[in-house]
C-alpha cells in the first residue's frame, strides 16, 4: 500500500493509503477537505490542486503542458503545484506529503 499525507488549509494532517487509481480519487474517498474532484479527473475543474513538498518533487514529477496551463490562472499556484487527479497512486510516491491548495 502507498501512504500519502494530506495537510489541509486548517493544518490538519491526514494519512491515507491506496494502491490504485489517482491521488484525487483517494482524497475524495477519504473526504480530504479542499479536494473536490468535480470533473472526475479529466484535468478540467482544478478542484484537486495540491502543493508537493520540494523534497518529493522529483518523485511526483512535473505537470504536463495541459495541466500547467490549467494551473497557470489559479490564485494559489506555486512552482510545486499539481492537480492530483493527474498523479497515479503507486510505489513511486509512497510517503509523500501534499499540502491542499484550497
Amino acid at each position: 500500500m502507498t501512504k500519502i499525507t494530506f495537510i489541509t488549509q486548517d493544518n490538519e494532517s491526514i494519512i491515507v493509503e491506496g494502491n490504485s487509481g489517482n491521488v484525487m480519487e483517494l482524497a475524495v474517498q477519504n473526504k480530504i477537505k479542499g479536494i473536490e474532484g468535480n470533473c472526475g479527473g479529466v484535468c478540467s475543474c482544478a478542484t484537486c490542486h495540491v502543493h508537493v513538498q520540494p523534497e518529493d518533487w522529483d518523485r511526483v514529477g512535473a505537470p504536463s503542458t495541459l495541466e500547467s496551463d490549467m494551473l497557470e490562472f489559479d490564485d494559489h499556484v506555486s512552482e510545486y503545484s499539481r492537480l492530483c487527479c493527474q498523479i497515479n497512486v503507486d510505489d513511486t510516491i509512497d510517503g509523500i506529503v501534499l499540502k491542499v491548495a484550497n
Binding site: V42, C43, S44, C45, L66, E67, M70, F73
Partner: peptide, 13 residues
C-alpha cells in the same frame, strides 16, 4: 475516452 480534457464548458475560475 478522452482522458485529459481541460474543457471550460462549465466556465473557468
Amino acid at each position: 475516452d478522452r482522458k485529459i480534457n481541460p474543457h471550460v464548458a462549465f466556465g473557468f475560475g
